[in-house]
Design a protein around this nucleic acid. Sequence first.
DNA 1: TTGTATGCGTTATCAT
DNA 2: ATGATAACGCATACAA
Lengths: 337, 337
Amino acid sequence: MKKAATIRDVAAHAGVSVSVVSRVLNGTGAVAPAKRAQVLEAIDALAYRPRAAARELSHGHSDTIGLLLADLTNPFFARLADRVVAEARSRDLQILVMTTQEDPHLEGQALDTLLDRSVGGMIGTPTGHNVERWEKLSALDIPVVFVDRTVGELAQVDVVSIENVGSAATATRHLLDRGHTRVGIVSGPLDTSTGVERVQGYEQALRERGLARDDALVRPAPFRGDLGAEVVAQMLALEDPPTGLVVANTAQVRVVLRMLAQARVAIPDDLSVVVFDDNPWTELIRPPLTVVRQPIDMLALHSVELVHARMRQKLPPAPRRVRVVAEFLERSSTARI
Amino acid sequence: MKKAATIRDVAAHAGVSVSVVSRVLNGTGAVAPAKRAQVLEAIDALAYRPRAAARELSHGHSDTIGLLLADLTNPFFARLADRVVAEARSRDLQILVMTTQEDPHLEGQALDTLLDRSVGGMIGTPTGHNVERWEKLSALDIPVVFVDRTVGELAQVDVVSIENVGSAATATRHLLDRGHTRVGIVSGPLDTSTGVERVQGYEQALRERGLARDDALVRPAPFRGDLGAEVVAQMLALEDPPTGLVVANTAQVRVVLRMLAQARVAIPDDLSVVVFDDNPWTELIRPPLTVVRQPIDMLALHSVELVHARMRQKLPPAPRRVRVVAEFLERSSTARI
DNA sequence: TTGTATGCGTTATCAT
DNA sequence: ATGATAACGCATACAA
């Protein structure tokens, strides 16, 4: 085990000073073509690679972007991670992936370690409970971009998400248009932006049709656990059960569908169902599901582009809110009543 | 934007030298109880957190573990990532996740950047094509643990995987026991350990029953892309098509099932199917699938424990091969012929 | 265009 | 028990 070469070794091998090497490395300042060649040769010969830690320490911060996701077990976030990593790679950025498991405590820890590593930027799906820490990042001039969801108290951060209100309204309207008057919704927790916004869209569609909201049909469910299934079961046990259902909580789609299957609820005969987010596995489900498909590659693209631009201070300070449209895809899980 | 506090600030605030602070921080050396209290107070007051980069630069390497996975889009790897992160967290280790997309070139890049960051250890699913770079890691005394699969040329690294040969044999036997004599297998590429080992298990089961291997029924498929489906279609188009199928390539399970559904192949009436790896979405599929379930939490546990132990040099140098047993789960996708 | 010298934040060695 | 101080590897301001 011999030690890895340092910039000094390269300088020595090339017969120049370290500053010259540093300059060819970073493209800063000019160097004579001849020397540049020697340096390049030396770098190659010694298989030299700059140490990230040294660079970071000297420069103050790294070009690594922290990606703090809720849950890799959810295909939506997993695919998001995949796309973000890809986008970052094409920009020579590095991604440090961490997960919160929707747990504010873990989110706090993750934010701390991300800070320790002096990340140059952050992309995250906040739980909503570590406002001070997120603020601290901004205070330290570390660009933060929220993706998918946001938290109201943090007005100064950039946000990339789908048009939640509109998408939920479209999904709801689709059911109303098919004659359903009793339409239920399982949303995310109401202290999350996706939760409230999608419920808003749902209510908006109801209002348009002059329908009143029935609290028994508007049920938030936590992202973790199986409570979404229970909540739907309760709806179906109502005297006047819904004939249409919008599952607006991505993380609960699976358990809801499983419960429906176990309870022998025929889709769409007994219940018309629209779910949020399409994922490769849903195409195996019978019947094929009518879905709100989130353009994950766009979410990833804009998120990475935003942090990157901010990191290079290429953007005016005003916070950006990028909202991409989600595609509504009618398949066979919804029918006329 | 005010700068974050450094160890010097803490020392000043506490009225001691930096060495004292460093000692209470790392528990190295003794400090007077009184001073320790002052230091702790100062740390708290200034919200001080040691910079990872500085620590790393000084110490030579970090306590970060690189996790280099093939594809987060595959639920198997996504869940593995989730569990590894969890195991690491409980040991105060950090995980840097990267993906190869099964692309040797990307794997090479990822390994380079991981090296740049002087990771203290690595857990990975190798593509099989960057032998020199993996060796370089070992040469630099960076512990490497392969999980799920391994590379023949790299004999000195630890491996954590399931009992591939045995699992494939069990799956195959299950079909043979039910009267199937024409059993096909879709494996991973034959230049991967999982690919060859599972085919070995398949052949072993065949031999036990005195059956000859038919090359037309043993079809490897790449991990990426949809070729697995095509390969199965070809099998079914044979004059003497298989009545049983083992899908031993996790990444191709989804596309194979989709193709089967589209081709209106009734499971298990027309074809009995066993697939490798159970994932939460497969429970929504009809009929419920007979599967080889990989104990992902065990894979994660052992992987993390192994690197961690190696990082602390708590293990004898001889490479460890941990093989955990995979559970065979009979459900309804297999039937007597 | 090139080289020298200093600082980045921490750990570790050595006196005290 | 405590405190200077020299690395660690790189970037960079400043001199030459």
